[in-house]
Design a protein around this nucleic acid. Structure first.
Length: 423
RNA sequence: GGUGAGGUGGGUGAGUGGCUGAAACCAGCAGUUUGCUAAACUGCCGUACGGGAAACUGUACCGGGGGUUCGAAUCCCCCCCUCACCGCCA
């Protein structure tokens, strides 16, 4: 969430930036300031009363010690009489703080100045594209048919043991995924990211920290008995490593990577988009996360984009990079780049990575701060990106590289797999 | 699942009703001194929200929430978490 102090000091700017999300920013922001004004006033009154009460209590102590019982008794009863009033004021301050918090939770992150204006996917700005879209023969198959033809994925077996959206990978396809894990993690560690194996379930506080809660609990699988959530992305555990921490400025940036399965309920998204590997409840992903100094975060965002682009190039897939417009960006992001690869038999672009700068939006929620010398602690910036999400990469590789001998793997993956063709 | 112990500032760790926002030590910052990377000494050193141009100052916070009291880190109740041992088990 945005900091109320920042909103107060940069009111016009925040409203202007938020307008890119096509919401009534002015009303939201003015309301926040209005609640905060009331909060300040209530706190001021409450503090003054508490100060008086503290003073009286101290006096009682001194008088008692001096043996002046009668006077102590008089002051004690005065102090006792203040209790109700103090309680009421404290109640009021708490209530206003909660109200402000609730209100701020509803305000999305303010888009960065480079974010294009727009309402939906059609307004995203194409930054650049690369690779070559293959020209496939007329009888080219979509990946779900290739999966059956070469006995690579069993969708029905997944339905049997779990349900739709949980495919079972077999033989060379299973091996290919293990290879992909190694290839991607190697790429990331070579770029300076430290590899982690985090837990796949997180507690409620972590869900709040990265912004899945309170609004999007419907998207996560919840283990009620233990009050834990299955992670929708490893961004959640990785970023929450630093919740409630004050880092040293010289330790920034912190670069992390992890391979994990990701679990998403995808409630309400049924239809043709979910065919084959396009949208799953469980999928594998390698993630990169950075905790950055605010002055460096946009430079780092570009570096992360270059890094992901380099990986996709090595996989030989035709891709395009989009800068998302204000209407298409996630709630917590200040600027997002999406990577899409072209899946030539489906004849459509598939999102395989999303790289975002959250600025201090997540950091504010999770109190992730850093300290520079004797300066006061400041909120750090958080960034993350997929490098990469597996299923759609697999779909594109299968469709684009289909030959009469099977699916020809890109050379980098051949090294990791020990074979050339999926067949 | 059973039993026991415990949750205090960046870390270790004292503190059982007012003189404690909290000893001491370590780490960190600033300085002094000695013939080098080093040591010794001195001072500073929690966070948040208010007020103030600033110096400074008010309030809150010792896992979370309630209660007792003029006054709570300290006493009482509930909850959460961690650790140890036992049981079960990969």
């Amino acid at each position: 969430m945005l900091q109320i102090q920042f909103i107060r000091e940069h009111t016009a700017e925040v409203i202007e930036r938020l307008k890119k999300r096509n919401i009534d920013a002015e009303t939201l922001i003015n309301k926040a300031i209005e609640i905060d004004d009331m909060r300040k006033k209530a706190q001021y009154e409450c503090d003054a009363l508490l100060a008086e009460s503290n003073q009286l209590s101290r006096t009682v102590g001194e008088l008692m010690k001096a043996g002046n019982k009668a006077e102590a008794e008089a002051i004690r009863s005065r102090s006792a009489a203040m209790k109700d009033e103090i309680k009421n004021l404290e109640e009021k301050v708490k209530q206003l703080e909660a109200e402000l918090q609730q209100h701020l939770y509803q305000i999305p992150n303010a888009p960065y100045h480079l974010v294009p204006v727009g309402h939906g996917a059609e307004d995203n700005l194409e930054i650049r594209k690369g690779g070559t879209i293959p020209s496939l023969p007329e009888n080219a198959l979509p990946h779900w048919d290739l999966a059956t033809k070469y006995n690579l994925i069993d969708f029905e077996l997944g339905v049997k043991i779990t349900g739709a959206g949980f495919p079972v990978y077999k033989g060379k396809m299973a091996r290919l995924q293990r290879a992909l894990v190694n290839f991607l993690l190697d790429q990331n560690t070579q770029a300076g990211y430290t590899e982690y194996v985090p837990p796949l379930v997180v507690n409620e506080a972590s869900g709040y920290g990265t912004g899945q809660l309170p609004d999007k609990e419907g998207q996560m699988y919840f283990i009620g008995e233990d009050n834990l959530y299955l992670i929708p992305t490893s961004e959640v555990p990785l970023t929450n490593f630093f919740r409630d921490e004050i880092l040293k400025a010289e330790d920034l940036p912190i670069k992390l990577t992890a391979f994990t399965p990701c679990f998403r309920r995808e409630a309400g998204s049924y239809g043709k988009d979910v065919r084959g590997l396009n949208r799953l409840h469980q999928f594998d992903k390698v993630e990169i996360v950075q905790i950055a100094h605010p002055d460096k975060s946009y430079q780092i965002l570009e570096e992360m984009v270059m890094h992901v682009e380099g990986i996709i190039q090595q996989l030989g897939l035709p891709y395009r990079i989009l800068r998302l417009c204000g209407g298409d960006m996630g709630f917590a992001s200040a600027m997002t780049y999406d990577f899409e690869v072209y899946s030539a038999a489906q004849k459509r672009w598939l999102e395989v990575s999303s790289v975002s700068n959250f600025e201090s939006f997540q950091a504010n929620r999770m109190k992730l701060r850093f300290k520079e010398g004797i300066e006061k602690p400041r909120l750090a910036h958080t960034l993350n990106g997929s490098s990469l999400a597996f299923p759609r990469i697999l779909a594109a590789l299968m469709e684009n590289n289909q030959t009469s001998d099977g699916i020809l793997l890109p050379p980098v993956l051949q090294q990791y797999c020990g074979f050339e063709y999926l067949n």
